[in-house]
């Protein structure tokens, strides 16, 4: 039971990390980046190349990975989001474009890195430690702590800084932001880069758990999207809570039913959550103005 709770929290943290990055893009552009799972995968691939294959020290490797993935995220913005201009909200185009980018990323990764999954060393070594009677990897604790820190960071950044206000303004209206003397283009780019950095960190954190391969985020990506929506898109507290909740519910459900139903149950939870509270756990319902 506790072991299940622990592994649920670790998976939940990973969903939360994905949800946080999906959120930050949503909050400025109003789109969901369906290629985010693949960007996380690329993060893991780059980390593997820098840290394991090339033997660059961990911290430097981490920084390099963050920079590379941030660049990839920015490129993604220019190729799949920017061309739609301000008409993002009304078109399905971005949805297909980001899904297409996901396919491209996966298959390029397959060509370059091969299809064979590879191991990635856990942070804090592979010695198990015993806490409260359950054995766990130090890595699991790192995952929880880092996710919490990132969530807190976002809560502060979005809530209390100038950047946060600028992001809010951008999400309200691009033209209004311009009037206020803020370049909405810059804000959006910043957000994509930030989402790339979180993706890189998420990639490094996930790698020892899922192994590094082109398909590593195939289902995790969709669940990160689900976590963001359960929590209420555009809300970092919600993303964190939504991710953890999803992970824990999933793990607990697994102690009761056949594992084959796992994903079905995860999505059923999401559908029920959305139907009951469409605005998300932490979301606020607005009356539409005509």
């Amino acid at each position: 039971m506790f072991q299940a709770l622990e592994s649920g929290m670790v998976m939940g943290s990973i969903y939360a990390l994905l949800a946080l990055a999906i959120n930050i893009i949503y909050s400025t552009t109003g789109i969901i980046n369906f290629a985010h799972g693949e960007i996380v995968m690329l993060g893991a691939m780059f980390a593997l190349t820098f840290i394991v294959t090339s033997g660059i020290p961990f911290l430097l490797g981490l920084i390099l990975t963050c920079i590379t993935v941030a660049i990839v995220a920015v490129i993604l913005y220019y190729c799949t989001v920017r061309p739609f201009g301000d008409k993002l909200g009304n078109s399905l185009g971005w949805l297909m474009a980001t899904l297409g980018a996901g396919i491209v990323f996966t298959n390029i990764a397959m060509l370059v890195f091969g299809t064979q999954p590879k191991a990635f060393p856990p942070i804090g070594g592979s010695e198990l430690v015993k806490i409260f009677g359950i054995k766990l990897l130090p890595h699991d604790i790192w995952v929880l702590v880092i996710t919490l820190l990132i969530a807190l960071f976002f809560n502060v950044v979005l809530g209390k800084t100038i950047l946060g206000n600028a992001i809010k303004a951008t999400s309200f209206s691009h033209s209004v932001t311009k009037l206020m003397g803020i370049s909405s283009q810059k804000i959006v780019l910043t957000c994509f880069a930030m989402s790339g950095i979180i993706a890189a960190i998420a990639g490094i954190l996930i790698s020892p758990i899922t192994f590094v391969g082109p398909q590593m985020t195939a289902t995790i990506g969709l669940k990160g999207f689900g976590a963001a929506i359960i929590g209420g898109v555009g809300n970092s507290k919600g993303a964190f809570a939504g991710g953890l909740l999803l992970g824990i519910l999933e793990a607990l459900a697994m102690t009761q039913v056949t594992p084959g139903y796992k994903d079905a149950i995860a999505f059923l939870i999401m559908i029920i959550a959305i139907s009951i509270k469409p605005e998300g756990i932490f979301g606020v319902a607005y009356e539409k103005k005509v």
Binding site: C79, L92, G93, M96, A97, L99, G100, A101, V104, N107
Partner: peptide, 11 residues
Amino acid sequence: IVYGLLMIVVV
């Protein structure tokens, strides 16, 4: 890869 790129270009 080409299929994915076509998806993006066409939309």
